[in-house]
Design a protein around this nucleic acid. Structure first.
Length: 310
DNA sequence: TCCTCCCTGTTC
DNA sequence: GAACAGGGAGGA
């Protein structure tokens, strides 16, 4: 289940293998995997991958089109020049001056691997980007929730999911993140955990890092978001940044399927304090950890160490 | 704001 | 053979 640290790890292991390489052809093995921009797929032929980066849980590939495709009029060319209305975030600098963007969401089981030229698709291969002698990028996804969107920069800036994303939790200071929490959570009736999972509040947090950061900040996940005091929000901001940074350092968490783009597992699962440890003893007080469902997600916490705010 | 759905492999 | 894993869209 790739969240921010796992996607970041995949970016770091995939990028060096494919940046600068040219896509010779694309094979779509599962049509629904390409969720937007199927009409742009032919333009990928001869396109050069100029960068691989991340925003929230999205893996982004920046492409420079082949000269023969660069000035092809596209159906939406006029709209592309119009400034997006109310876009909260502009294009990340890492995309540079690109012509086209591939935006991948790995959801639960998406993964990338670069295979030698001529390798046949595997059981769960959904998309193949053929790089000629440089090999073949496989996008594998057992549960088929993952997707790829082929977008021009203007399409990305008009994509509601993209424009509504909250800040990157590691791009700002803990104080700024805490202040952002205070602003965006005031008046929220939802639980603090539900709010952390909301990508419009903060980008890239999933079930693992929500549970882990709430434990580290000593906040009961069922607490009402609006009731969590500022002091605890600062603790939460620091805790979230700590677990995300530590996980990136350990190349993410491998629960079941997750592997980076070199096939390696992460190690942060060995550091879990609560996630997946229902009924085990709390590392802090020794009491049995409790569990519940929040937003339909399994939630584990320590009823003694984590304070409930109502 | 919360629930259901999407999907398949693993576990109970 | 049912329960479970869960991000996000869409609907109640």
């Amino acid at each position: 289940m790739p969240e921010l640290p796992e996607v970041e790890t995949i970016v770091r292991t995939l990028g060096p293998q494919i940046v600068g390489k040219t896509i010779e052809s694309v094979t779509t093995l599962l049509p629904k995997t390409v969720q937007a921009g199927t009409d742009l797929l032919p333009l990928l032929e001869g396109a050069r991958i100029t960068n691989v980066c991340r925003r929230a849980k999205l893996l982004l590939m920046a492409l420079r089109l082949a000269p023969k495709n660069q000035h092809k009029p596209t159906p939406d060319a006029k709209a592309e020049t119009a400034a997006p209305q109310g876009a909260a975030y502009c294009l990340p600098a890492c995309l540079g001056n690109c012509d086209l963007i591939l935006a991948f969401h790995l959801k639960m089981t998406g993964s990338f691997f670069v295979h030698p030229p001529g390798t046949s698709p595997l059981a769960h291969t959904r998309l193949i980007f053929d790089l000629g002698q440089a090999g073949r990028i496989f996008f594998d996804d057992m549960r088929t929730f993952g997707y790829c969107r082929v977008m021009r920069p203007g399409d990305l800036e008009r994509w509601p999911f993209w424009t509504s994303l909250g800040p990157e939790p590691l791009d700002i200071s803990p104080e700024a993140l805490a202040a952002h929490f205070a602003r965006s959570l005031s008046g929220r009736r939802a639980s603090i955990k539900t709010s952390l999972l909301d990508q419009t509040v903060v980008a890239g947090v999933g079930n693992i890092y929500a549970d882990e950061s709430l434990f580290a900040a000593r906040i009961d996940p069922r607490s009402h978001a609006r009731a969590v005091p500022e002091k605890s929000l600062l603790a939460l901001a620091k805790a979230l940044q700590n677990v995300l940074r530590q996980s990136i350092e350990e190349c993410g968490s491998s629960i079941r399927d997750y592997r980076d783009a070199l096939g390696n597992a992460g190690a942060f699962q060995n550091s879990f304090a609560v996630y997946g440890r229902k009924d085990a003893s709390c590392i802090s007080c020794g009491l049995a950890l409790a569990s519940c469902k929040l937003s339909g997600r399994g939630t584990v916490f320590c009823p003694k160490c984590q304070t409930y705010f109502e």
